[in-house]
Structure formats: structure tokens, C-alpha cells
């Protein structure tokens, strides 16, 4: 292929990439300007701007309570999924359990099983024990679907570890636990944090399990869902914009952290 044709192909590729990215991102970005309108109804373009709908969100206890509940559940999930997931990674990589492959597959299963299936199961199961409307049960169910992501992220990082470092610490007289925490854990930490952030948002965004399980206590996605089906007030645009900004910053930060650490490990 001649150089000229190659450049044309690259340009066509860039154009195509641009079109696809526009399709992916445009509908999300368009919410941001709309959320700053002062109009009574959603309209585009807004005719006057202000923070009216943000004030509406912040002053409505129903919205705030839902946000707080979601935050609590997601924080619990981040802790539970990250701790259990990291322990599982260590056991799978170091303990060489029998059926290790099958266990890894089983842990990954909730990624591909539709959430509606898990939601229905958890609901029927919870009813049997009188566990409905309980935020800890919700956190448990969310942890089950967040776990595979933590295992994937931390597991990938664990594979990059250099076992020689830990062995050196052992040779120098550290016990196994101390050797792990001084020689391996610091390298794993970025992936663990990234996994925790990821798990947090798996829970924070989840609707269906919460919708089945909870009744009086509403999570933020449940509140959004109810609003979407009933009235579509512009408050929603403000809530959505906040979520878009927070999600992007948190996850981009976590991803950046993870990649930096990965690159550092790759250099060794």
C-alpha cells in the first residue's frame, strides 16, 4: 500500500471513530446544558439559565434521602466486594485450590446472568426469610454482582506481581503476612482501590434488584425510575448531570490510577 493511501485510510478511520464516539457521548453531554435551564419544562435549547433545578434537588428530602441510602449501600458494597474479592484472588492465585478454574468461572458468573434473574431470585429468597426492605440484604446482593469485577481487576494486577520481591522479604526474615504487606500489597493497592470504586458504582447505579427488594426505603435509581415514569421534571436533568460528572471523574480517576500502577509493574 502506498503512503498516500495509508494516510487516507487512517483519516477515514479517524472520521469513523469520531462518528461512533459522537453517537456514544452526545446524548450524555446534551443533558448538561439542559440541566442549567430555569424553564418549567424540559426544552432545548433552554431559554434562560440558572440553578433552579439543582436547588430543587437539594431541597427535596425525598431526593436527598434516596441519595443518602444509595450512598450507604454502595459504600457497604465497595467494602464487602473488595475485601471478599481480594481474598479470593489471593486464595485462587496462591492457595492453588482444587477446582480453581471452576471456582473462578463461578465467581465470574453474575457478570453474564441478567440482573432481572438475580433480582427475582434474591426477592423470592428474601421474602422467605422476611428480609424485604433491608439495606444490608440489598448490599449483599449488590456485592454478589460487584464481586466478579473486583476479582477481574485485582486478579489482573496480581498476575503482574514479581514473586521474587516477596521471597526476598521472607529471606530477610519477614513472616508471610509481613512479607505480603510490605512487598506485594503496595503494588496491589491501586487495583484494589480501582476495584472498590468500580464496585461502588455497580451498586450505586443498580435499579432492578433494589426495585424488587426495597419498598419504603428508596434508592436513588428507584427515585429516578419513579420520576421518569410519572412526570419527567427537569429536576431529573440536574440529578443526571451530577451523576454524569461524579461517575466520570471517579471512574476515570480509578482507571488512571490502575493504569499507572500497571505500567510501573510492567517496567520491572
Amino acid at each position: 500500500m502506498s503512503g498516500g493511501r495509508l494516510i487516507t485510510a487512517r483519516r477515514l478511520g479517524a472520521l469513523y471513530f469520531g462518528v461512533v464516539v459522537f453517537y456514544l457521548i452526545f446524548p450524555i453531554l446534551i443533558i448538561l446544558p439542559i440541566s442549567f435551564s430555569n424553564n418549567d419544562f424540559l426544552r432545548f435549547p433552554p431559554s434562560n439559565f440558572g440553578l433552579r433545578w439543582y436547588r430543587d434537588y437539594l431541597s427535596d428530602p425525598v431526593w436527598i434521602d434516596a441519595t443518602i441510602l444509595s450512598f450507604q449501600v454502595a459504600a457497604l458494597v465497595a467494602v464487602i466486594a473488595t475485601v471478599t474479592g481480594t481474598l479470593a484472588v489471593l486464595a485462587l492465585a496462591r492457595g492453588r485450590p482444587r477446582f480453581g478454574r471452576a471456582i473462578s468461572g463461578f465467581i465470574a458468573l453474575p457478570i453474564v446472568i441478567p440482573h432481572i434473574f438475580i433480582a427475582l431470585g434474591v426477592f423470592i429468597f428474601a421474602v422467605r426469610f422476611g428480609w424485604e426492605d433491608n439495606m444490608f440484604v440489598l448490599a449483599g446482593a449488590h456485592s454478589a454482582i460487584a464481586l466478579p469485577f473486583v476479582v477481574l481487576i485485582v486478579g489482573a494486577s496480581h498476575r503482574q506481581l514479581d514473586p521474587a520481591l516477596e521471597q526476598a522479604a521472607r529471606v530477610l526474615g519477614a513472616g508471610p503476612v509481613r512479607a505480603f504487606f510490605s512487598a506485594a500489597f503496595p503494588s496491589l493497592l491501586p487495583a484494589i482501590v480501582a476495584g472498590a470504586v468500580f464496585a461502588f458504582f455497580v451498586s450505586f447505579d443498580e435499579l432492578i434488584i433494589a426495585q424488587f427488594l426495597m419498598s419504603r426505603n428508596e434508592t436513588l435509581p428507584m427515585r429516578i425510575w419513579a420520576d421518569l415514569r410519572l412526570e419527567l421534571r427537569p429536576t431529573l436533568a440536574a440529578v443526571a448531570s451530577l451523576l454524569i460528572v461524579v461517575t466520570t471523574l471517579a471512574l476515570a480517576g480509578a482507571e488512571l490510577l490502575r493504569r499507572r500502577a500497571q505500567a510501573k509493574l510492567d517496567q520491572r
Binding site: I80, V83, T84, G85, L87, A88, L90, A91, L92, R94, G95, P97, I103, F106, I107, L109, P110, F117, I118, L120, G121, V122, F123, I124, F125, G140, A141, S143, A144, L147, V151, P176, V177, F180
Partner: peptide
């Protein structure tokens, strides 16, 4: 020290919130 017990919390969670519901 890095033995199978480390798998239990994860498996217990999946048992209660995934397998038994299924």
C-alpha cells in the same frame, strides 16, 4: 497462611445472594 479459607467469604456471599436465590 494463603489458603483456602480466603475463598470462603466470597463463596459464602455467592451462595447466599446468588446460588440459593437461583
Amino acid at each position: 497462611i494463603f489458603r483456602h479459607w480466603m475463598l470462603w467469604p466470597a463463596l459464602a456471599m455467592l451462595l447466599v445472594f446468588f446460588l440459593m436465590p437461583s
